[in-house]
Design a protein around this nucleic acid. Structure first.
Lengths: 195, 195
DNA sequence: CAACGTAACACTAACCGTTAGGGTTTTGGA
DNA sequence: TCCAAAACCCTAACGGTTAGTGTTACGTTG
């Protein structure tokens, strides 16, 4: 008793996890393209419609946790201390993100993603959404009502770092290198960026 | 002149054009989602399999001409005069590209694209390919064997301009603004960018 | 110029992701 | 206790895409 989440929500979360686990297992075992939605549903012992009530698409099964990891960026901006400069903060978060991708058991997953055009496409679309969210967060941080072109540009550049760094020989060094460029770009914004 | 290709190739090109025309007509008439591949094939009076031998996907029908317009960027870099600075050249090409999208009868098409998630996603993926090609062209232009991280970053930033400018109130001004940032980023690249 | 190889196209039938429609069980609360 | 909603199941279909198998028209070569 006294469980903040009720039994219903726990069961729902369990079902979702069961599906995600089954999917990842099958994908890594036989390859993403060789596994059908019906296979995943059968392995998780749920109906296909149930699967799609938890995940919006086949690709979403792969990016289960990754999604909220990139939300860290926008949250970090929203909650930043007033004396913390914006760009170094973003750089620090991006370092953490890239490190998370390189280490852990994440390697096979990213090899799978790189091997499937559908997954690459989905990943990029997801990043676009994150870039928009980040642009709004930056704009709000600067006291702007809506994201200006400069904000949106910087947000895109920052999000691009993830993809660029992942494909570099030394990802961490790549993050530093690209942020040198971003810092310069940010300081070149015509209207004063630090109002 | 310009008729070295035999009858067979002309017929093939005609078929391709017939399909593209039929598709665009139906899409603008009834909306992209409301028109099926089978409708397009019927309207063009070809088999569905024939349609897919000319176009890789339903989305590709929409971006028929747009694809090679962005190729202009890489070609401009490859053929640039030795005294022409790189970034202003890219800026000029980007201006032309954005102008082309704003004017002409392109407005309804872009409204259609903005209205369909599938088309937006396809467009972004197409841009990624262009960014890779542009990165290679820039690297070659600098005498590098393969595209470095800085080259790939600049290429992405440049390609991003298209999407950012299209959604700005004043697209041409947005191009100028973002290129201010890109110029600064380019000059901040650690190893000397201009040999 | 006659015959052959092949490129372009057609037809059918299916695969696969995704959704609609309609029903059953489980859960939380009145 | 009983109800409304949530979560789930099943079936059937839709729409993009592809495989398999022919058929026709072109270009080439003996």
């Amino acid at each position: 008793m006294t469980e903040p989440p009720g039994r219903r929500e726990r069961k729902k979360a369990a079902t979702r996890q069961k599906i995600a686990d089954a999917a990842l297992r099958l994908f890594l075992e036989r390859g993403y393209d060789a596994v059908g939605i019906r296979d995943v549903a059968a392995e998780a012992d749920v109906a296909v419609t149930t699967l799609f009530s938890h995940f919006a698409s086949k690709e979403a099964l792969v990016f289960e946790q990754d999604a909220d990891f990139e939300q860290r960026l926008t949250r970090a901006v929203a909650e930043r201390a007033p004396d913390e400069p914006l760009i170094p903060l973003l750089k620090r978060e991006m370092h953490a993100l890239v490190r998370h991708c390189s280490t852990e058991g994440a390697a096979p997953v990213y090899r799978m993603i790189d091997g499937s055009p559908a997954l690459r496409q989905y990943e990029e679309t997801m990043r676009l959404r994150h870039a928009e969210a980040l642009a709004s967060a930056i704009a709000a941080d600067l006291g702007q009502a809506a994201a200006t072109t400069a904000c949106r540009a910087i947000a895109r550049f920052v999000i691009d770092v993830h993809a660029l760094a992942r494909e570099a020989k030394d990802p961490q060094a790549a993050v530093d290198e690209i942020f040198e460029m971003i810092e310069a770009a940010w300081e070149a914004v015509p209207p004063p960026p630090r109002g």
